[in-house]
């Protein structure tokens, strides 16, 4: 089981003003704020932590079907370069990859390397992006499991948690898109 989240760096620059009053206070704990503010690139550090929280939330809601907005309570911790995110008694490992264009995080219950496949969209339409992402994920699952792509169906629960269905099997998947980028993992 995995939760993932991608941040398009250019899009985040355009959409959010992190320096507006109370912005950091609403999303980050004191320790996280300290990490952000002492980082050489505060902007990247902020979105790195944000994507970790989002990835962890997406994993948490697969295990605990629910829907809420509590980014500050998903607390990021680092120890010897290994990141973990805690929420109440839930804890997970998070791996992050930062490029010049995007930041991607992946949360799992065990230590892991990033497996998310990243796509670059040419079309800005969200519906088309979602379709492209699901099509690519179908192809990947089909190839690995030796099943026909068209037999794979995607569903979203009332809490927005996505699953892939095939041969009366159900697997948890994680899809993310932001700006020009999308990614999936399972």
């Amino acid at each position: 089981m995995v939760g993932n989240d991608i941040v398009d760096i250019a899009q985040a620059k355009k959409d959010s003003n992190w320096q507006r009053p109370r912005f950091l206070d609403k999303l980050f704990t004191e320790k996280e704020k300290e990490f952000i503010l002492k980082s050489e690139d505060k902007f990247i550090a902020l979105w790195q932590l944000w994507s970790m929280k989002e990835a962890a939330y997406k994993l948490y809601t697969q295990l605990n079907p629910s829907r809420f907005y509590a980014p500050k309570q998903f607390e990021c911790f680092v120890n010897a370069s290994i990141w973990k995110v805690n929420y109440k008694d839930f804890t997970c490992y998070v791996s992050t990859k930062i490029t010049t264009d995007y930041i991607i995080s992946e949360a799992r219950l065990v230590q892991h390397k990033i497996t998310s496949e990243v796509l670059v969209f040419k079309n800005e339409d969200l519906k088309i992006q979602g379709q492209i992402l699901r099509d690519k994920l179908s192809k990947t699952i089909g190839k690995r499991r030796h099943i026909q792509t068209k037999t794979i169906e995607f569903q979203k629960s009332e809490f927005g948690v996505p699953t892939a269905h095939f041969n009366s099997k159900k697997i948890n998947v994680s899809l993310t898109h932001h700006g020009r980028f999308g990614a999936f993992a399972y």
Binding site: F23, K26, A70
Partner: peptide, 24 residues
């Protein structure tokens, strides 16, 4: 979801209120 916090901050400014974690 990153813009939900902007909506929350805008609501706070517009109505001169403060939202706690439980509200968020």
């Amino acid at each position: 979801s990153a813009n939900l916090v902007d909506i929350i901050l805008d609501i706070e400014d517009e109505f001169d209120i403060r939202l706690e974690n439980d509200d968020m």
